[in-house]
Design a protein around this nucleic acid. Structure first.
Length: 491
RNA sequence: GGCCCCUUGGUCAAGCGGUCAAGACACCGCCCUUUCACGGCGGUAACGGGGGUUCGAGUCCCCCAGGGGUCACCA
């Protein structure tokens, strides 16, 4: 009997694209599982598809994982005792096991060309039969085989698959899932270019890397019996499996580029915080049973159980992610937010060495109203740039009646007269003046807001004024007065 | 099409034989308020269908339907 002494899990993406949120969630579940029981989280790059794998993609995936804080214990850049952690560097290992299977007559060379096989497959399809490889190369004589091999005829290696009985996948999320052996054929384990196929490489690597729990996306469930055949042929003990359901787009289809942002980096660039994305992803398919929306990562680790992972596919909802991000952003340390905004702010000329303090004050005012970092740049422009136009409806309402000029002039006076330019005292002055003028405070507040920001909605006006400073306020009120003058002339 | 997985409001999701079927997002009201957010209160909205088992079924079993996955010298 084989006992697992060490808990080891892995995330094994193929570097043929970006790290999308489905992959990120799979990585997260692996990571949480490992952390929750003191296991090891391994990262392995499955890059045996030489044509589609790219270094850029690999770097992007690594970067995405790091950004999320899902650091791996072993893997690229980290090392470990079971490397290399890139399949493209493990050819000698696969060859060793390939030769073992060949020597034990558990696998055989197949010389059928892709074209031949395609024809057989098409025929089977047309006849509405299930296609299974005929197995004709299995019966090749040794001499014939040697002849073809030495003639350099391209060959793949197939594994001899049992055709009776059944395989039971022990899945920690789904329970036992049975597959009948009769459905499987002698599938290819090594391509004619000498590289192993996925199902072979995965099984060999998971064994060699002493993986105890294979936690991966549901799309791999149907592949699992094939991998089990490899395990069995090689005499490897089986790991435990856990197949996590997929994340679907709002139209219930598989996530793809046409669904907008799907990759971790896109979300980063859109101004989402890693904590928020992680929290959202965790709740999309996992529940502790408690009624908690916001999870500190440490609590997640404490509470995480594979049994709490959902079996049904989940449709992701960017609205909820955004809502959640808004909460994280509102509570984030202002200095940290500043760091996150810094680059873009400098590019826009909003931030330089002399106005850091001002910039921080603006963030403090705006950050709890933004749902994403990107929104900050849409919401705070008037703090850094001249007001170039006024909200149309606002102008109609506050700049376009007989009292408008008088009110604006009054405002200028109030502002000039305000001794200490602090939110409290400004507010006091405003309310006083409104009273003496027999107006509502709003009658003064709204035109001021529009004058200072060009908008009808902003953070609290008096806080805003304090941050802007007296000088800027007066200047903008004067600009508004000019604007109203012109408006009157043209009427 | 074969095989496999899945099915509670629009979305996420609690529930594990007895509940008026939680909660969150979204949506709609109201309150707070200088606007916008936030917050508070309230509301609309669900067990895919059909058979069983049981005193009793969202919960167990079977069938159907729908959705998803997979059937490559891709991973």
């Amino acid at each position: 009997m084989f006992y697992l002494t060490d808990i080891r899990v892995r995330f094994a993406p193929s570097p043929t694209g970006t790290l999308h949120i489905g992959g990120a969630r799979t990585a997260l579940f692996n990571w949480l599982f490992a952390k929750s029981i003191g296991g090891v989280f391994v990262l392995r790059l499955e890059d045996t598809d030489l044509l589609r794998s790219t270094e850029d993609s690999a770097q992007g995936i690594l970067e995405g994982l790091k950004w999320l804080g899902l650091e791996w214990d072993e893997g690229p850049g980290k090392g470990g005792n079971y490397g290399p952690y890139q399949q493209s560097k493990r050819l000698h290992i696969y060859n060793e096991y390939l030769e073992k299977l060949l020597a034990e007559n558990k696998a055989y060379y197949c010389f059928c060309s892709p074209d031949e096989l395609k024809i057989e497959r098409d025929n089977a399809m047309q006849a509405k039969r299930d296609y299974k490889y005929s197995g004709k190369c299995k019966c090749l004589s040794d001499s014939k085989k040697a002849e073809l091999l030495s003639a350099g005829k391209p060959a793949v290696i197939r594994i001899k698959a049992p055709d009776e009985g059944k395989l039971i996948v022990q899945d920690l999320i789904r329970g036992n899932v049975e597959f009948s052996n009769s459905l499987l054929d002698d599938f290819i384990i090594a391509k004619s270019d000498g590289w192993p196929t996925y199902n072979f490489a995965v099984a060999v690597d998971d064994y060699c890397m002493k993986i105890s729990h294979v936690i991966r996306a549901e799309e791999h469930l149907s592949n699992t019996p094939k991998q089990m055949i490899v395990y069995n042929a090689l005499g490897f003990p089986l790991p435990l499996f856990a197949h996590v359901s997929m994340i679907l787009a709002p139209d219930r289809s598989k996530l793809s580029k046409r669904h907008g942002a799907t990759s971790v980096q896109e979300f980063r660039d859109l101004g989402y915080l890693p904590e928020a994305l992680l929290n959202y992803l965790a709740l999309l398919g996992w529940s502790s049973g408690e009624d908690i929306d916001f999870w500190a990562i440490d609590d997640m680790i404490k509470q995480f159980k594979l049994a709490g992972v959902s079996r049904s596919p989940a449709i992701y909802d960017i609205g909820k992610l955004t809502w959640m991000n808004g909460h994280y952003l509102a509570e984030e340390n202002t200095e940290k937010v500043m760091v996150l905004l810094e680059n873009e702010a400098k590019i826009r000329g909003w931030l330089n060495d002399n106005n850091r303090e001002y910039f921080v004050k603006v963030i403090r005012l705006v950050q709890n109203r933004c749902k994403t970092l990107l929104e900050f740049f849409n919401m705070a422009d008037y703090f850094f740039e001249e007001v170039s136009s006024y909200d149309e409806k606002g102008a109609k309402k506050y700049f376009n009646h007989e009292n408008s000029l008088k009110i604006l002039n009054d405002l200028n006076e109030i502002i000039k007269d305000t001794g200490e330019f602090k939110a409290d005292s400004i507010e006091n002055d405003f309310r006083h003046r409104a009273e003496t003028l027999n107006m509502k405070a709003g009658d003064l507040i709204h035109p001021t807001r529009l004058s200072l920001s060009g908008r009808t909605s902003t953070p609290g006006l008096f806080e805003l004024m304090e941050v802007m400073g007296k000088e800027m306020c007066i200047k903008r009120i004067n600009n508004a007065i000019d604007y109203v003058h012109k408006l009157n002339l043209s009427n």
